[in-house]
């Protein structure tokens, strides 16, 4: 496998006057309480993980759990107090100011919860902004920005001001702006949290469509577990600055690492999360019907098909080889009974 695009090793972020000294004295064993007594707030506590190319890592956690702080460390909007961060193998914390600016101008894009558009610029100017900052000619940057306007479906509104747009439209501008420089790495900090549920769903679908097309390496932050499940390749669940668990959605639902994670997963409708391959059995010699299901299907989508069979159903991989089997009882068990089986 190639090098990970983002790699964090024991990243700490601690706010406060003598954060660095306290961290050194703590010897890698940071306890939020003792720090707080000394006037320090722990934002991120010992975060280690990797994100590989084209992967979408969703960071999930309640408000104040340190998600934004983690993201701001990785984009170096704030300097991590301890640990190492590598972006495509480059040591982020060792970059000088110029290198950092270059990195941001070419490799990184970021979307913000409150949109963070420039109020004095039109939609088009906002989107062209990172390009113009890079020093691209006005005409070229405006043309490129116009392409982005079309990409996010805002054609006809390019001369509006942010204040004349709805929240969803404003966030489209934010997305277009972050994509204008064609970054490899895309950071999104609760991009849809400020939107109405209906618009949010629409934007999520739109976002998936874009990602299908663009295949960026993404860190997506949300406090909404459903959103995380819908979008993520892998999910990191944070609490008090600590990453409690980092795994695929299915594994998180099936094997919560801690009590805290389990509480989250309790209410989750499994059939919407789990794939056939997560629950399938070995190939059996049972009499299997004609119906076959792909191992990458979400259970919900094929449940009806399987349940009407009353027989064990063959599970196939992408090349139509049979790789396993699943019987209706298992489906019923997963959907209705599974919740109590874990512990």
């Amino acid at each position: 496998m190639s090098e990970p695009v983002i790699k964090c090793q024991s990243v700490y972020k601690i706010f406060g006057a003598n954060a660095e000294r306290m961290l050194k004295e703590a010897n890698g064993n940071v306890d939020a309480k003792t720090f707080q007594e000394n006037g320090c707030i722990v934002g991120v506590n010992n975060a280690s993980f990797e994100v590989s190319k084209g992967e979408m890592l969703v960071v999930m956690g309640l408000s104040g759990s340190g998600k934004s702080t983690l993201l701001r460390c990785i984009s170096r909007l704030t300097d991590a107090t301890g640990g190492k961060i590598f972006i495509e193998g480059q040591d982020l914390l060792n970059l000088n100011n110029k290198e950092l600016i270059d990195l941001r101008r070419n490799k990184m894009g970021m979307v913000f919860q409150s949109f963070a558009l420039l109020p004095h610029k039109t939609v088009l100017e906002n989107i062209a902004f990172p390009l113009q900052i890079k020093g691209i000619k006005t005409e070229d940057s405006i043309n490129k920005a116009m392409d982005m306007v079309k990409l996010v479906g805002l054609d006809g509104r390019e001369n509006y001001f942010p204040r004349e747009l709805s929240g969803g439209q404003q966030q489209r501008v934010g997305i277009a702006r972050s994509l204008a420089v064609e970054p490899d790495i895309w950071f999104l900090d609760e991009p849809f949290s400020a939107l109405d549920p209906l618009i949010r769903k629409e934007m999520q679908d739109e976002f998936l469509r874009l990602q299908e097309k663009l295949q960026k390496t993404i860190m997506f932050i949300t406090h909404d577990f459903d959103e995380a499940l819908k979008l993520a390749d892998r999910i990191a669940i944070m609490k008090d600055g600590i990453i409690e668990q980092l795994d695929t959605p299915a594994n998180i639902v099936l094997n919560p690492a801690t009590e805290y994670v389990r509480k989250f997963t309790e209410e989750v409708p499994r059939e919407k999360v789990l794939l056939i391959k997560d629950v399938m059995d070995e190939i059996t010699s049972d009499n299997m019907g004609d119906i076959k299901v792909s191992k990458d299907e979400i259970i919900e989508n094929v449940a009806e098909k399987i349940l009407t069979q009353e027989k064990t159903v063959a599970v196939t991989d992408g090349k139509n080889n049979i790789v396993g089997s699943i019987n209706p009882a298992k489906i019923i068990n997963t959907v209705f009974g599974g919740r109590k089986n874990n512990h």
Partner: peptide, 10 residues
């Protein structure tokens, strides 16, 4: 956030 957006724009 506007300041950060500026920073992230390079």
């Amino acid at each position: 956030e506007v300041i950060e957006a500026g920073r992230m724009s390079g």
